[in-house]
């Protein structure tokens, strides 16, 4: 059940993972040959039960983990030690806990951290920070310390910190976790308004259906399914086989998706 992205031929894909296998130093094998292509501008949800290897896969995308079999390329550039600086600029990972992501004393400095580490200075840096905060609607909070913001605001600033690096692909780890419904919708609006490639790791199936036309299911270290999100969510045997459950009363077939 392998589905190819809508228009694979028209540009270099943002992300190409092929034959990726990885075992942790303690011997536990997390990935058993993952193949995944994400085209430029696509929004893809990465679904899977706990312990399926989702985080392991994400940490391979910018070279935090490596040394196993297989290759990862980001917009044509292989993830290898000599390219780490460029790869980490191209792959923007938003981690699950914004308190881990926001480590500088003020919002402005935090958003500036990535581009400044890449060598940007002065007015250009200032402009980059302002633009990134504007895109998540947090420009008025630039001089606030992160711990004085609400959780939803912190999550949005965390998205801005990676947007400031103008990444090729935005990787979100559980973007909707711990958000109240309003913050959840605000974040969805922001994500929809961005013109970058998005890979979204989530357990929140309605959120995946709302935002991502395509989904892949990672289960026991392999891609078990890849197709339009609505088709996957309506495939009951598949869902059951991979411990994916919809919220009570939610019928994915009843929703009209664009």
């Amino acid at each position: 059940m392998n589905h190819t992205p809508a228009n694979p031929g028209d540009a270099t894909p943002s992300l190409e993972v092929s034959g990726l296998a990885y075992a942790y130093p303690d011997g536990h094998q997390a990935l058993f040959g993952v193949d995944l292509t994400v085209g430029k501008g696509e929004r893809v949800a990465l679904l899977g039960p706990n312990g399926a290897g989702k985080t392991t896969l994400v940490l391979h995308l910018n070279g935090i983990l490596g040394g196993g079999v297989g290759t990862v390329t980001v917009a044509g550039l292989p993830v290898a030690k000599q390219h780490y600086a460029e790869i980490r600029r191209r792959v923007g990972i938003v981690f699950q806990d914004p308190d881990d992501q926001l480590f500088m004393p003020t919002v402005r400095e935090d958003v500036a951290f990535g581009p400044a580490a890449a060598g940007l200075r002065g007015a250009e840096l200032e402009e980059r920070v302002r633009a990134a905060l504007d895109r998540v609607g947090m420009a008025d909070f630039a001089d606030r310390p992160p711990h004085h913001l609400s959780f939803g605001q912190r999550r949005r600033v965390a998205v801005a910190t990676v947007l400031a690096m103008e990444p090729e692909i935005l990787v979100l780890d559980e973007p909707s976790s711990n958000l109240d419904p309003a913050s959840r919708r605000e974040l969805a609006d922001i994500l929809r308004s961005l013109d970058v490639t998005v890979l979204m790791v989530t357990h929140d199936l309605p959120y995946a259906l709302e935002l991502c036309p395509r989904s892949v299911v990672l289960s026991e270290g392999v891609i078990a399914a890849d197709g339009p999100t609505q088709d996957l969510l309506c495939d009951e045997p598949l869902m059951r086989a991979h411990r994916l459950e919809l919220p009570f009363g939610f019928d994915p077939a009843s929703v009209a998706v664009a």
Binding site: L59, A85, F95, Q101, F113
Partner: peptide
């Protein structure tokens, strides 16, 4: 980890 991911 988050710092390294942003080029630290």
């Amino acid at each position: 980890l988050a710092m390294v991911s942003r080029g630290y």
